[in-house]
């Protein structure tokens, strides 16, 4: 099971543009690496979609390909308007999803 970390502010002022940082454990197997013992290609297995929502609405998303490094790091911004909850979703090619939530109060 992938383990994710999120750094998002708990508080902000309306109109602030806040920065959000995320990390998740994942090998991001590109399908081009050879197993050293067997000499066979390790099957491709990557996280292909990352989605960031606030109060259920997607405000940022990313498509990842084999060029994204292992343990993907993703940082982006959000314009705070009202209080609510962030939801971050990592979707991998096998259909597995990791979800992380974080509340933010906007004054």
């Amino acid at each position: 099971m992938a383990k994710a970390r999120v750094k998002a502010p708990k508080k902000a002022k309306a109109g602030d543009i806040v920065t959000i940082k995320t990390l998740i454990t994942h090998k991001m197997e590109s399908g081009r690496r050879k197993d050293k013992k067997t000499g066979k290609l390790v099957p491709r297995h990557i996280i292909d979609k990352f989605t960031a929502k606030f109060n259920g609405e997607t405000f940022f998303s990313a498509d990842w390909h084999g060029s994204v490094s292992a343990n993907p790091y993703m940082s982006f911004s959000y314009k705070a308007e009202k209080s609510g909850e962030f939801e971050f979703i990592w979707h991998d090619e096998k259909g597995e999803e990791t979800v992380k939530k974080s509340k933010m109060t906007v004054a």
């Binding site: 383990k3 970390r5 750094k7 940082k21 990390l23 998740i24 454990t25 343990n71 790091y73």
Partner: peptide, 12 residues
């Protein structure tokens, strides 16, 4: 410490 990917291991 957030940008450092080793901290995923620290948390583990």
């Amino acid at each position: 410490d957030f940008e450092n990917p080793a901290f995923l291991m620290v948390e583990k």
